[in-house]
Design a protein around this nucleic acid. Structure first.
Length: 495
RNA sequence: GGGCCGUUAGCUCAGUUGGCAGAGCAGCUGACUCUUAAUCAGUAGGUCCGGGGUUCGAAUCCCUGACGGCCCA
C-alpha cells in the first residue's frame, strides 16, 4: 500500500526509522528470549525484593512497548508479549548515556528486546532492571489511547490486529475458542470417530436448506458451489463403512449478516451408524458438559445476563408441545389443521406463503413464540417432515421426524436427527424439493443423483448432527455478536 | 430490504440558538533517579465521512450517498 495518509505522527516515526536504517540492521531477527513475561510472574510471584536481589535472576524478554514513563534519568516502560506483560525499569547510569537516549526515542508500539535482572520496585512491582535494550521492529503507527483503548467496532473488526494489541479480552475469547475446538475434537476421537475433510467446492450443494455461493472452475469449465453443509458427503462415508465420522470445518451460506449469522461459519458435523437421535441427544449432553468443564472449569456460566447450567439433564420437549407450553391460549387441535394454524400464525404477524404446509406453519409459530425463550439447554424434538427433508420419519407419526434441535440462551446451537436411509423416500423428497426450486424457491435443494445411488447401496441406520461452533463459542465466552468470536468477520470494503 | 442510532485530531470524546474547530491521552520541546492513566511547563496536529442545497454565514438545518452498530424481515 503506497497510499499517502501519512500524517505528522507517521512522518515522525518514518524519520526515526530512517535513522535506525542508517545505523545498521533496522529489522533484526537474532534476538532470543529466555523468558515469557507471564513465566516470570509465575516463577517469582512469591519472592520479595530482598530475595530477588540475592537471587540475581537474569532474563531476556521481548514484545511490544505499551507505555513509557520517562522521569529524568530513570524510566519505566511496559512490555507486552504473547503471554502477558512486565514492567521495564531503565536507568541512565545503568544503560549508559547513548542507550538511554535511544530508549527515550522509542515509541509506544515499538517491538523491543530487553535483557536485565528480575527485581521488585520500591512499590513492590515485579519488573526487569534493564541492562540492554534493542529495537526489533519500528512501529510506524501510533496505538489507540492507553486508558479507553480501542472501542470503535468498525476498526476492531477491520483491524483485528489493533484490537488484539489493545483489548486483552478479545485475545482471551480466541484462546477459549481454540480450547473449545480442541476439547470437542478430543471428545470425538475418544469416542471412536474418524476426522475427515470433504469437499468445500461441490457440484451440487446439499445437506441444508440455504442459498449457496457460486464459483467457477475454469479448467473443468463448470459451475461449483461453496458447500452449505458437508452432510451428504459424510453420509456417503457411512455407506462406505466409516461408521463414526466427523468434520470440523467451514460452511458458506449466501444470506444476510446479523449478530448470529456470518456468511462463512464453522460447524462440527458427525454421523454414527447404528445410533438414533435419542443416542445423539445423550451424547451431546455429555459433550457439552465436558467442553464446559474443560474450558470454563465449571458447568454453569453467565450468558448475556442469564445464568445457564449444563449440569441438570437437558429438557426435552416436542416442537408442538413447546408451542403449547409457551402459548397457553393455543389449543393442540388448532395446530393440527392448516387453516386454523395459519390463523394463529397471522395473529403473530407471520407472513405465510402459499407453498407453506402445516409443518412449515408450525415451525414459523415455534420460531416466533418459543425459540428466544429457551434459555436453559432444551432439546426440541419431532420437527415436521415438511421442514426436514433429510431426516427419518417417526415410526408412530409420519407427520414428524426423529429430529431435534438444541436451544441454549434462546438460540439454536445444534441440529440432529436419525437419518433418512430409505433411498426411495429420499428420492421422492428430492423430487419435491426440486419442484419447489423450479417454482422459485431458491433455498430448496437440488436433486443429488449420486447421493441417491449411495443410499441404494444401503446406508445403515444412522444418526447425525451438526453443532454451530461459532454459536457455542459465543455462549461460552458470553459474546453478544458472532463477529466477536470470528477473527475477521465479513465486512463491506472500506472504500 | 426496512426502522433507529452513529461517523469531529492517531485514539477516546465535547461542540450551546447556525456565528473564529475544542479537551484528555498519544506526539514534539524542556524539567524531573522508583513510576502505576506519573507529574509540571510549553508546542504542533483537522477533507468535522463524501456530494449537493438553504443561508450574509453550516460540524450544526435540508436532500442524497458511503461505512458501521442495534433491531426487524
Amino acid at each position: 500500500m503506497t497510499e499517502q495518509d501519512d500524517n505528522q505522527l507517521i512522518a515522525q516515526r518514518r524519520e526515526k526509522l530512517q535513522g535506525v536504517r542508517a545505523s545498521g540492521i533496522a529489522f533484526p531477527n537474532d534476538f532470543r528470549r529466555t523468558h515469557l513475561t507471564a513465566g516470570i510472574h509465575e516463577q517469582y510471584a512469591e519472592h520479595d525484593k530482598e530475595d530477588l536481589e540475592s537471587m540475581a535472576v537474569e532474563a531476556s524478554v521481548c514484545g511490544r512497548l505499551m507505555f513509557k514513563r520517562v522521569q529524568g534519568k530513570v524510566s519505566f516502560a511496559g512490555l507486552k508479549d504473547g503471554s502477558g506483560s512486565i514492567q521495564l525499569f531503565l536507568q541512565r547510569d545503568n544503560l549508559g548515556d547513548e542507550a538511554y537516549a535511544s530508549f527515550k526515542s522509542l515509541d509506544i508500539g515499538d517491538v523491543v528486546g530487553a535483557e536485565g535482572m528480575v527485581f521488585r520496585t520500591n512499590r513492590g512491582e515485579l519488573s526487569l532492571r534493564v541492562n540492554s535494550l534493542r529495537l526489533l521492529t519500528k512501529s510506524l503507527r501510533s496505538l489507540p489511547e492507553k486508558w479507553h483503548g480501542l472501542s470503535d467496532t468498525e476498526i476492531r473488526y477491520r483491524q483485528r490486529y489493533v484490537d488484539l494489541i489493545m483489548n486483552d479480552d478479545i485475545g482471551e475469547v480466541f484462546r477459549k475458542r481454540s480450547a473449545i475446538v480442541e476439547s470437542i475434537r478430543r471428545f470425538m476421537l475418544k469416542h471412536g470417530y474418524l476426522e475427515v475433510e470433504t469437499p468445500m467446492m461441490q457440484p451440487i450443494p446439499g445437506g441444508a436448506v440455504a442459498r449457496p455461493f457460486i464459483t467457477y472452475h475454469n479448467a473443468l469449465d463448470m459451475q461449483l458451489y461453496l458447500r452449505i453443509a458437508p452432510e451428504l458427503y459424510l453420509k456417503r462415508l457411512v455407506v462406505g463403512g466409516i461408521e463414526r465420522v466427523f468434520e470440523i470445518n467451514r460452511n458458506f451460506r449466501n444470506e444476510g449478516l446479523s449478530t448470529r449469522h456470518n456468511p462463512e461459519f464453522t460447524m462440527l458435523e458427525f454421523y454414527a451408524a447404528y445410533a438414533d437421535y435419542n443416542d445423539l441427544m445423550d451424547f451431546t449432553e455429555r459433550m457439552f458438559r465436558e467442553v464446559a468443564d474443560n474450558v470454563l472449569g465449571e458447568l454453569s456460566f453467565q450468558y448475556q445476563g442469564h445464568d445457564i447450567d449444563f449440569a441438570p439433564s437437558f429438557h426435552r420437549v416436542s416442537l408442538k408441545q413447546a408451542i403449547l407450553d409457551h402459548n397457553p391460549d393455543i389449543e393442540a387441535a388448532q395446530l393440527e389443521e392448516p387453516a386454523r394454524a395459519a390463523d394463529i400464525a397471522l395473529r403473530f404477524g407471520i407472513q405465510l406463503k402459499d407453498s407453506y404446509g402445516l409443518g412449515k406453519i408450525q415451525l414459523e409459530i415455534f420460531e416466533a413464540t418459543v425459540e428466544e425463550r429457551l434459555i436453559q439447554p432444551t432439546f426440541v424434538t419431532q420437527f415436521p417432515a415438511e421442514v426436514s427433508p433429510l431426516a427419518r420419519r417417526n415410526d408412530d407419526d409420519a407427520f414428524v421426524t426423529d429430529r431435534f434441535e438444541l436451544f441454549v440462551g434462546g438460540r439454536e446451537i445444534v441440529n440432529g436427527f436419525s437419518e433418512l436411509n430409505d433411498a426411495e423416500d429420499q428420492a421422492e423428497r428430492f423430487r419435491q424439493q426440486a419442484a419447489d426450486k423450479d417454482a422459485g424457491d431458491d433455498e430448496a435443494m437440488h436433486y443429488d443423483a449420486d447421493y441417491i445411488r449411495a443410499l441404494e447401496y444401503g446406508l445403515p441406520p444412522t444418526a447425525g448432527e451438526g453443532i454451530g461452533i461459532d454459536r457455542l463459542v459465543m455462549l461460552l465466552t458470553d459474546s453478544a455478536s458472532i463477529r466477536d468470536v470470528i477473527l475477521f468477520p465479513q465486512m463491506r470494503p472500506e472504500n
